[in-house]
Design a protein around this nucleic acid. Structure first.
Lengths: 144, 144
DNA sequence: TATAAACAAATTGTGTACAATTTAATTGAG
DNA sequence: CTCAATTAAATTGTACACAATTTGTTTATA
């Protein structure tokens, strides 16, 4: 009996289905996000901007659990698409002010249909969805 | 009332906490995996090999939800560490046989302590853990 | 008030991820 | 039998992701 190794068997991991599920769902977003010329990471960055209109890289990183190494090139790409502007803050030049543009705001309208389209390809009853949401934020909150 | 945009607000997404949670937990693995000179992806690939001893790239990809574009360089790295060997199968040369070595098997002993160390930094009661596991596999199964 | 500590972004380097294409081997329909 | 279709890996190109370091600015203290 090699029960000794049970804890390091793939099917006994909790992180693995989390990792696989995340990747697979993000992959399912691609066809819909392609229509908006956004990647998934760019999409969630835009979500923060749609809500806040203006953020620093630090605030964005805290909201998305991403660091400047990921965000700097991503924000430069979104800037080149015309969806946002980047400028140092006059009050404290260490901070970069990221501001949503009219063009960036317009993309929000095109994004409105995405959640429903995703529901079709994921299919999870609302009871499980609520439970999943609750547990995931419980983990996130206890880790940060 | 901008309730019109409720569905595309970050806090109403289910995929985002999944994506963030996955990344954060994988990041917590790093210090422990560094001791084994493995990344998280290399670790789960080794888990499959510890169990199966021998797989093709296709089988490994199906188990891990990864394609050859990710696995080819990853397996070459694990080969260079001496943890596995790579060779075309004589029965069908399209397939690559990936075989666990003695050195690769030995790493399993060093990995035994990881799950417990991870429990300390994640903290989820077994009820929630079971629920999370159930829901994640429900999603994975209905997507593949 | 120098200047060391702290801070925010940017940069560098390594390692995934994955779509799309290519290469090489095998299979199957005519 | 033969060549088109299929299949498995590898390759190519783009985009994260993050640790570690660097750059430039601000703050705090000796």
């Amino acid at each position: 009996m090699d029960d000794k190794y049970a804890a390091i068997r793939l099917q006994n991991q909790l992180c693995f289905p989390l990792y696989a599920c995340s990747k697979e769902i993000v992959r399912r977003y691609k066809p819909y996000l392609d229509e908006l010329d956004l990647t998934y990471t760019q999409y969630i960055a835009m979500m923060v901007l749609w809500e806040k209109k203006e953020v620093t890289v630090k605030e964005l990183g805290e909201a998305l659990y991403l660091d400047s190494g990921t965000l700097t090139p991503l924000l430069k790409k979104l800037e080149s698409k015309g969806y946002l502007t980047r400028a140092r803050m006059e009050s404290d030049e260490r901070n970069l002010r990221v501001t949503l543009t009219k063009e960036g705001e317009a993309v929000q309208e095109k994004a409105l249909g995405i959640p429903e389209k995703m529901n079709c390809c994921v299919k999870l009853d609302s009871e499980d969805a609520k439970e999943l949401y609750r547990i995931l934020y419980k983990i996130l909150n206890c880790m940060s």
